[in-house]
Design a protein around this nucleic acid. Structure first.
Lengths: 160, 160
DNA sequence: ATGGGTGCAAATGCTTTGCAAGTAC
DNA sequence: GTACTTGCAAAGCATTTGCACCCAT
């Protein structure tokens, strides 16, 4: 299997793009930390590593990494995009707590299989997918049940 | 079961908000057409129906409709939000074609059931979810396979 | 008269882009 | 040498917000 660097290089080559120091640095930092991140966090991380790369270049490079399949975009319902490494990590989906924002990752192969089935049925060729469950995590759930009992509210207090 | 209007009124009441002519109009138009829409499309639709309601009010009202569960937000990976009616429509998920943008809706109860199972396992209380499969629809698939054969490309031409 | 509602225009905040100068191949 | 790249600042765009005026109760 190609290393992530080789894969990136091959993609760049195929588009007649260049493997520059900036792209190298971003690739490195993105995979140095596991977990989701947003563009701004990457900027900070780069600065902390004495790498001065402009926001524009960050956005441009992230877009390339998504296109070649090394990253995927995850949107948690906020106005900005999160990214997460794909290479070397098992595919998973997310549960997002509406109260505290906690993110739980989960793997459920049976869901994946059913998706493939649905795609086949519709003659659709899947490339990627995202499944996201919004709700309340165990902690906030306890908190919220208490609150609802006290206030007698009918609609939960989900102020997202 | 409450009508959508009653449900909205009850929600507004519970928050000490008022059921104004604008909110009425938006509720009506949103449910007059089935299918997803974005804020701007709703604005046009309102204008065509001789209803002059400002963008600000549209956004404010859509947000209320989402909060009371009559609408849900669907994000197709573009920078703007799509909404779709929940009330009176069976829950479904989406396949989005990366090439032509076509949207296929599908219902798969077995996936829903597995989701519930995963939530239970994590002591997570689901409120909503979205599952979205990106890929190529039958038509674009044929187109693309042809193109790949001709150009010998290794990476698909997904310029989203 | 009071608390919420509306429209307008300005502000926000993430992301993209035009441009001039730099750099990889 | 010739594209492709970069950084900067400006532009874009969907969405939100401040504010003055309006309306329903």
């Amino acid at each position: 299997m190609l290393s992530k660097e080789d894969l990136f290089k091959e993609y760049l080559d195929s588009k007649k793009l260049k493997f520059t120091a900036e792209r190298q640095a971003i690739l490195d930092r993105v995979f140095a930390n596991y977990k989701h991140f947003e563009a701004d966090e990457l900027l900070v991380d780069l600065r902390q590593n004495k790498l001065k790369i402009s926001k524009a270049t960050i956005y441009r490079t992230l877009s390339l990494l998504v296109k070649c399949g090394l990253l995927r975009e995850v949107i948690f319902g906020e106005r900005h995009t999160h990214y997460e490494p794909v290479y070397g990590h098992e595919h998973h989906d997310h549960m997002v707590c509406n109260d505290c924002g906690m993110i739980i990752e989960f793997v459920e192969n049976r869901i994946e299989r059913l998706q493939d089935e649905v795609c086949k049925k519709n003659n659709f060729e899947p490339e990627s997918h995202r499944l996201q469950i919004q709700g309340l995590c165990a902690v906030c759930r306890k908190k919220d049940i208490g609150a609802l009992q006290i206030t007698g509210k009918k609609f939960p207090s989900v102020e997202v």
